[in-house]
Design a protein around this nucleic acid. Sequence first.
DNA 1: TACTTGACATTTT
DNA 2: AAAAATGCCAAGT
Length: 103
Amino acid sequence: MDEEYVEAVLRLVEQVPPGRATTYGAIGDLVGSGPRLVGRVMSQFGDAVCWWRVVRADGSTPDFLAERAGARWQAEGTPVRARPGRSCAVDLVRCLHVPQVTD
DNA sequence: TACTTGACATTTT
DNA sequence: AAAAATGCCAAGT
């Protein structure tokens, strides 16, 4: 495993301020790898960072974390838009935040 | 070594 | 609008 890559991802996630969120695709693009890699890293080290600030391209999280993520968003004041019949998703139009690659 | 799976995204049916 | 197909990279079986 490339620890450098992992650290880079975790760093970007840590750079996301409360009340905001970023997407796997954005991080993947910033680190120069596909979004799946970011997801994989999160599955292993996600608990080490604010994973709820990392959402899918549609602004939502996997169903596993939908509840917990929703609670976090509400606690942090992240703008979430209710999805009819589904879990809530953060309003990326409002809170999408792309961390800097200033390494 | 080959196939399947995964905290994803984008394009075409 | 919703579902399927394709691309992507790495790990597990």
